[in-house]
Design a protein around this nucleic acid. Structure first.
Lengths: 145, 145
DNA sequence: TTATTAAAAAGTAACGATTACTATTAAGTA
DNA sequence: TACTTAATAGTAATCGTTACTTTTTAATAA
């Protein structure tokens, strides 16, 4: 876990970005739950609690920078953004099962793209989005909802 | 096309909802492009141009009601909602390829779910989201971007 | 057709996530 | 230790969306 933060910090350095205590705290926070999506508003609340008077703008700007660097994955559901620490910087293509109760993310192997490409002759496929959601095994066992 | 509006109106009646001229206009507008997603803000602008002084609340409330009735499909991309008239009330399960240039929607046959269910023992899968995006054949031919 | 009534619309104004902007602070480097 | 420039704080704005209250209007019955 602290491992991952250091790896992320190295990425920042490699891009000549400054290592501020705020950024380090943000990364630590995200790193605590590498397999869960976190509302950016929760991160915002946490940071402003940790550093009273910290600016919204700083948090959102850093989120965007982390995303550009591939340190976090962003996902929009409804009206607010959620992000997740990205551990495997190797960045192998994969998809997610997201638990609606606890936010836990399970990575899925295999990508369904191949089955569809030939249905769109002439089109230029630039990307895709595939997610499954529901209750993870733990939440089912705990009797959620 | 007017066909589809009438079908939608029947659905409203069936649920004891009133057929107002505003609702009829909204449905007509959406029905003009049954294979394209439209920003709700565009619909909002159109309606307020058509009925000067029309309330935002009315438009958004109706969008929500149409969605509850299955008359439109909603999809959130980024910061604003997009909707699409739902023609096939039979509502056969399918997925979409969405052109980022013109918003055109192509329905895809086959669903990738079956391949993944067995990767999540114990979980309760409640839904999924699969979309492909890029440029449709027309936009590619027209040399978009 | 007219009266009735419940739902829908208008007309504010607010809310909440996100962002622009400027002055100040602090991280990185010499 | 001083310097330079990126990062932060602080303030306020933006924009999509919604809550609330009053007024209007579609649907139904007399």
């Amino acid at each position: 876990m602290a491992e991952d933060v250091n790896t992320a910090v190295e990425v920042l350095q490699k891009h000549h970005l400054k290592i501020t205590k705020q950024r380090r705290t943000m990364l630590s926070f995200l790193c605590q739950r590498p397999d869960h999506y976190t509302d950016v508003t929760s991160l915002d609340a946490y940071m402003r609690d940790f550093y009273p008077g910290m600016s919204h703008a700083t948090i959102y700007r850093n989120v965007k920078e982390f995303e550009d660097l591939g340190l976090v994955e962003q996902q929009v559901n409804g009206d607010q953004a959620r992000i997740k620490f990205q551990c495997d910087f190797a960045n192998m293509h994969h998809h997610h099962f997201i638990c609606r109760n606890c936010g836990k993310v399970t990575e899925l192997t295999m990508c369904p793209m191949d089955f569809f490409a030939n249905q769109l002759p002439g089109a230029q496929i630039e990307g895709h989005r595939f997610e499954m959601y529901g209750l993870c095994a733990d939440c089912v066992a705990a009797g959620a909802e």
